[in-house]
Simulated scan of single mutants.
Amino acid sequence: MGSGGSVKAHSQKGISLLELLIGLAVLGILLGVGFVSLSAYRQSLVIREAATQVATELQRIRQQARRQSLNFSFQAAEGGNTYKVGPTRELALQAGKPLPPGVIFQHVPAGGGRVTFLAPYGVVDAANRTFTLRGPGNRVLNVHVVGSTGKVVVRAP
């Protein structure tokens, strides 16, 4: 065997700069898609929270009208982000309750945006009223007060 010239192949350890850049690009794309999805999900949660808040208030005052034998009202202004809720005769004195940040009442029922539940049965003064809420990303949900019984339903438009 001679001293003639066999060359040993060196094995490569680590990653090349090109492989690192490709890996970072893929990671960046995945993070970008995830961020967009997370942002859209958060916007959906905010509008859902607002609709649930309004629906819960309406259901609560319906029950109070039945229990206390007093008329209770809910009132909101179109374009506003607060509402008033309480006994009808004291409604003007009530402080406004805020919706979650970024949510407004896009549309309220005719007649000043008021829904009144009448004692002693908790029926509504006027049937089929709808409050439309608009939140971040222009997401919209409707809160319906259905029929004269005052059942409250949240739906997409």
Rank of each mutant, 00 (worst) to 15 (best):
M1T: 12
G2D: 13
S3C: 03
V7P: 05
S11G: 13
Q12T: 08
I15P: 04
L18V: 13
E19S: 08
I22P: 07
I22V: 15
L24Q: 11
A25S: 12
L27Q: 10
L27S: 15
L27P: 10
G28S: 06
G28M: 02
G28F: 09
I29S: 07
I29M: 12
V33L: 15
V36N: 05
V36R: 09
L38G: 13
L38W: 14
R42N: 12
R42G: 07
Q43L: 08
V46N: 05
A50W: 08
T52N: 13
T52L: 13
T52A: 13
A55S: 04
T56S: 11
E57Q: 15
E57F: 14
E57I: 10
L58C: 07
R60V: 06
R60P: 09
R60K: 14
Q63L: 15
A65Q: 02
R66P: 02
Q68V: 07
S69T: 14
S73E: 09
E78L: 07
E78G: 04
G79K: 06
N81R: 11
Y83M: 10
V85D: 00
G86Q: 08
L93F: 11
L93S: 09
Q94R: 04
Q94N: 03
A95R: 15
G96P: 02
K97L: 14
K97V: 12
K97Y: 10
P98I: 08
V103K: 03
F105N: 08
F105G: 02
Q106G: 03
H107W: 05
P109T: 00
P109H: 02
G112W: 07
V115E: 06
T116H: 03
F117L: 02
L118N: 04
P120G: 06
G122I: 02
V123E: 02
N128Y: 02
T130I: 05
T132K: 01
G135I: 00
R139I: 00
R139M: 04
H144N: 10
V146S: 05
V146D: 05
K151G: 06
A156M: 10
